[in-house]
Design a protein around this nucleic acid. Structure first.
Lengths: 208, 208
DNA sequence: CAAACAATATGACCACCGGTTATTTTATTT
DNA sequence: AAATAAAATAACCGGTGGTCATATTGTTTG
């Protein structure tokens, strides 16, 4: 009965083809200007077929978000694994986020652009557990490590602090990507310098 | 020749009527689900007339952004004026931002939701100077004050740091507003506590 | 006052797009 | 080979941002 397995494989392949096509279009056009028609074209399918696999444009966009999340998560894990001290792990995660922003701008933009409108919060949580991909968790672990090894203030709460660091950094990178030109050309500021200053402030803020 | 002035007044009044109507619709429906037709209805005009005053839905949304900015700016100025020490001013501005988030959720959401798509960066900068409304500037001044009066580390750069604090706080509030339910109901965390922890980290980060 | 003119406002109209569905094509089973 | 199931299609629909020819209102001038 290898037939149903083959069917399943083909289905997964088709799904991947569609998501690949969607990714290209979303990357080049942005969410709003991307059309289902163009995605279908690029996938060499008709528009109606897309809806056999994904219930909406938003849902399809969510798949790209999934990929972004996975890539970032892997980078976070790598970064944290290469350091011993908790505080250093946290720093490394921050650096990894910045590198992600520099090297994976398209995925980064999807993450930033992604609003809860596109996917329900439940789907989103389910996605993270299903894919075992929760960047936030890596951060929590590193902070706990840091408190234990004495590199991080013991009066900060790990979960809260992870959330804070995560949202701080996201906010910073979001602003940076939106105002990059203005900052560099208009105000003659270096993004690198801003990031370094920010990391410094956070270091002062959480290290013992 | 009071006639042209009257015309001008009437034009400004009409503009205000339209923006008021747009505000109501945007607040209740969100940007995407708001329709120009409904805005026109609420303003007791036809849709075509809206385009005599505003070139697009995005531009109209930008007007609400303008208002949000003004309200926040005023709160920032008030907050900073009530403190003497620079570091305290910075704290007060942070608190003001949090209060803005709590008390002006609609305007807050517009600020958060507002993407560069809606308005070109040039228009945006022009808007701020024209309306003399630059929340960022208040923050810079407070940091400079703080460095002078010795309440803030003298090795931080004011402009960069202002940008950083601004984007940090925006990121935090954005995350908070998006995941409020999940945090409070799912993880049993208090938003207040998260904010307090965040302020504490930033205090450690910039105070001398 | 009326005719000419300018301004403001209207609503019918267009193009586009996300999503649906009846129909056709392809693959599988009997 | 006929029957059945699965997959894909293309025509279609409703809604929306934006436009434009036309109409309405207000102002100026002879």
């Amino acid at each position: 009965m290898g037939i149903s397995e083959r069917k399943e494989r083909e289905k997964q392949r088709r799904i991947k083809e569609i998501v690949d096509a969607a990714e290209k279009v979303f990357f080049s056009k942005g969410f709003k200007n991307a059309t289902m028609e163009e995605i279908a074209e690029k996938a060499e399918l008709s528009k109606g077929t897309l809806y056999l696999y994904f219930s909406s444009k938003d849902h399809l966009y969510g798949q790209i978000m999934k990929r972004s999340c996975k890539i970032l998560f892997d980078r976070f894990e790598d970064a944290a694994a290469q350091r011993k001290l908790g505080a250093d792990k946290v720093d490394a995660i921050g650096d990894a986020y910045y590198l992600f922003y520099l090297e994976e701008q398209d995925y980064f933009n999807v993450m930033i652009n992604f609003e809860s409108k596109h996917l329900s919060e439940e789907d989103f949580v389910a996605m993270k557990t299903e894919e075992n991909c929760n960047p936030h968790a890596v951060l929590i672990d590193s902070i706990i490590t840091g408190i234990k090894d004495g590199s991080i203030r013991e009066d900060v709460k790990p979960v809260e602090t992870a959330l804070i660091l995560w949202s701080f950094t996201t906010g910073l990178l979001q602003m940076t990507s939106q105002k990059k030109d203005l900052l560099e050309k208009g105000y003659n500021m270096q993004i690198d310098g801003i990031i370094a200053q920010a990391c410094n402030i956070l270091d002062y803020g959480i290290r013992k």
